[in-house]
Nucleic acid binder design. Structure first.
Lengths: 227, 227, 227, 227
DNA sequence: GATGAATGAGCGTTCATTCAT
DNA sequence: AATGAATGAACGCTCATTCAT
């Protein structure tokens, strides 16, 4: 596997792959079509990639790198947890609109037909965000910003789950329909509402429970009992 | 299309289909393999189903019927919202363990390769739960059990999103890995922890915000439904 | 191969076969369709016929028997050769219109795909007419009705060739088109013209050549010089 | 559809197709068998032809082009009608012997199983000869070479019918058997006899009827001579 | 004897992969 | 190194034939 193609040419090829894989799925996608889209011969694909699977993986990695950079950028700052959440949501909205194929491909690897890659890719993809989320949740707990009785890792998991589903709602046909059925309007129609409601949901989920508040406030006299 | 196969034999065929479709995805799954798994000849498949697509749809519907009954059973009762949530979580845990293929197939249709069915299936599948969830959230609001400043439909959407992701974590390889990465242990290892943490997350998300509480506390006599 | 079906029932089956074989050709014709058309189960076909080929042969024989009877009837009389020719032409016209499937099937066996049957069927089918035609040509020669310098067998062959092509023009799509192209109108449009022109052609073909006439008439005084 | 195969290699493929289609008919003929006969893989067939039908058509056209050139060559000259007839007969004899498959395929399209092509092909194939024959018959009439009371188009039709049947007798199994039955010997055995008898038949069929002769003789002053 | 569901060989066709140019 | 025509395994699907009922 020698390298003669410029990075630019390789970009064209990978983009063509991402496009075709997102459009038709990894199985129905055709190497000929991809080559044609990229303006190269099939031979080139096989000079640079062992086979279709290998090429698919390369396309995948490219998507993930981009997705990763989107998240990393947001997490770089030193914001409070809810600001972070808002930034993440807005970043995913933007990215999902501009490059939905990347998200479609991301979703593709979660499907059973990719069980070959599942473990290895999961590790590569999810490690960064999982660590980041757990960490900033723990920090927020330490800073007294959010409830302290939560398992940071599981809460990070829930947090990411909500973001993923939102992401898919913006880029995958099925999830977009699902959103419409649940909410009555297209997810693209009212970005702000999505942002505000999700933040409301998260803020509350992360906030001190009333009995915790009691504790904290050291005001045992006020009975704020849940029901 | 005549019926000679007993229901039992047809079950075997559909299960073989579900298994194979879950394992390889709708495209790579082979009708020959399915027939072999079911212990019948390919011809039988084509005596009872128009073509591969038609058969896939039949497998799908079987899965969805089961999933639906799982949810419907839980929703039949008159429980409070968090009891319902707990029952749902436990039901999905149980079902996901016993019949993971069903969930895998459900996940399959969310992938791009099924975009043929996406809109129609989404409607069929998600309508029931979306309506049920929205409705019991609204009722809970009216009963003063949960916050009143939430959009019931979006909150239903978030609620379902969390359940779906959990479901997939129990049944789809990728999501299971993801859970492990986020939480540090296999999702099957500690069902109770999952239940309790998710309930904690949900309870809090649904509960009155502190400022709402304050508000409420100042006007205990006022019925705070709807704001 | 036992016989339980009444002749009538068998007739229905054979007619269904003839219809389907004529419509789709022996290869594309389906045993199931034939059974359905005949209102019986496929099993019946295989109780009475070894296989598709065997059944096709039976259909064929039925057609040929009918075609044969049409010709035999005409040849039964003691007419002069041209009267016979006219009667034959008219009989074929009538038959071709009424039961074109029979002719289509007859044509089918002349095609290469039936080379299995060719020799045996040719003998069965063509023997009768060939002998009949040769014989009445020879008799006509002996009676001084037609030229004596013709080989009766070859002339019988030419005679039959013209009739066959006419027959096919009435019943086979391709030949019907061909007729239209040659003559400018549909063969069904002007039966009389066809009859009269073919008779003109035949009469002349069979008639004494001019030099024969000279010879026979021994009337050298008449100037018959062609050129 | 690019061209990498040399004309020679393509010839081999088409010949293999013609051979197989002639042997088994368009339906039973197998693309795999054809590929094997041609010494190429099935894939090649599908690189150069859309599908089986398309390939069959290509084989057909090849046959027709050759047949056409055989006839065109003969008709190019300025011969008298009977000389033309003789040349045609001899050309068809020669061609039928050398490339019988071509004729078999020609015959194939006349059969019902090709009714898809029938009208379009009929036009393509028969137009040329039909016009040529009609025209030279009309010219022969104007030149006083043949009878003037004949419809040139119908007579052209009869003329072609006789040639076609002869052609098929040389190349199609069934018709060859039929010839044997009618004439008592194989058509290949005595080409000369076939030529002379058919010419005798045609000459006479085209010649002035006796009553026309009489007529003509009574009006010697009228210049009816061609030359 | 009649049935028609089950069978499975074999079809037309596709497309990932190879390799001579 | 790039090409893209050739390859052929493997697919979805059909249908003549069988045989348990």
């Amino acid at each position: 596997m020698v390298k003669k193609l410029t990075d630019q040419e390789m970009d064209v090829i990978l983009e063509a792959g991402i496009d075709e894989f997102a459009l038709n799925g990894p199985d129905k996608a055709s190497m000929h079509t991809i080559a044609a889209k990229a303006g190269v011969s099939v031979g080139v694909l096989y000079n640079y990639f062992k086979n279709k699977d290998d090429f698919f993986e390369a396309c995948l990695r490219r998507c993930l790198k981009v997705l990763d950079s989107v998240i990393s950028e947001v997490l770089a700052g030193e914001d409070k947890i809810l600001v972070r959440a808002e930034k993440l949501i807005r970043a995913l909205q933007k990215h999902a609109k501009e490059q939905s194929s990347y998200n479609v491909l991301y979703h593709e690897i979660t499907s059973g037909s990719c069980h070959k890659y599942a473990p290895v890719l999961a590790k590569e993809i999810e490690s960064i965000s999982s660590q980041a989320y757990s960490t900033f949740i723990r920090h927020a707990q330490e800073d007294g910003d959010i409830r302290t009785d939560a398992d940071p890792r599981l809460f990070a998991f829930f947090f990411d789950s909500l973001l993923m589903m939102l992401q898919f709602s913006y880029s995958c046909e099925y999830y977009r329909e699902r959103f419409k059925i649940y909410c009555g309007y297209d997810v693209f129609e009212d970005d702000e509402k999505v942002v505000s409601e999700l933040l409301k949901f998260l803020e509350s989920a992360f906030s001190f429970e009333q009995n915790q508040i009691k504790h904290r406030a050291q005001q045992p006299q006020v009975n704020t009992g849940g029901e």
